[in-house]
Design a binder for these strands. Sequence first.
DNA 1: TCTATTTCCTGTCGGC
DNA 2: TGCCGACAGGAAATAG
Length: 273
Amino acid sequence: MPELPEVENVKKGLKELVINKQIKYVTVLWGNIVKDPIVETFISEIKGQRIITIERRGKFLLFVLDDYVLISHLRMEGKFRVEQSSVPLTKHTHIIFTLDTGEELRYLDVRKFGRMSLVDKNRVSLHPSLASLGPEPVCEELTVEKIRLFLSNKKRSIKSCLLDQKMVAGIGNIYADEILFASGIHPARIGESLTSTEISKLHHDIIDIMEKAVASGGTTIRTYSNAYGREGSFQQNLKVYGKAGTACVNCQTPINKIKIAQRGTHFCPNCQI
DNA sequence: TCTATTTCCTGTCGGC
DNA sequence: TGCCGACAGGAAATAG
């Protein structure tokens, strides 16, 4: 399940493989992946566009083309692969970008949850998917004050707030649990109940964990791999996610698993208060 | 305005 | 062995 660190590594891999190549045409095998515009327009407008660069914002991949930006969200299991056209398609290939080199940039997605939008280059920042995103989890953008302001009137759980892309862009279920464990904060705590000391610690741990995860190439739980098919290694650093019933690394209390905001939530009932 | 719930999807796993 | 239900979950849409 790609979160920011995984998407960042996908971006790096793809940049080496497709930059400066031209999209001759696109084949859409599962139309629901294309959110906007309508599939027919998507196909006609992307034809002939060159891939100038690839950027990332939160968990979104941005393929910067001549006149458009292709915004892609991998959601749960979306993947990009670059293959020679002679390589047979797999069952879960849904969109094929045929390049001028004879290669194909293929979008694969077992659960068909991923979404793509093709938007006018000068209207990218206005697109609803990007317009409401909060700051990136790096110290130049994410300040203690921004988190304090966001949480100041929140009646819902801190876990739900961490998953809200308006507070910080790029955090998903795995890292939300890991961050709260590092900060010693119970995931069910109400957002506005956090003290200024806790908010400072949370701010530090958000940046720290996301940076380390990026450096590790992301986390491979089930099926994530980057554009080269390589897996990440941050799963070796996980302290609570997927560890229900095993001993807490700090106090040996069994890790608990509950459901918060419809998400599996792992925490140490002794360390997190 | 804010929060909670539902929807989209299919492979995997546990229970019988 | 095979069937069935539960589960995994990000973001958008919908409901309250």
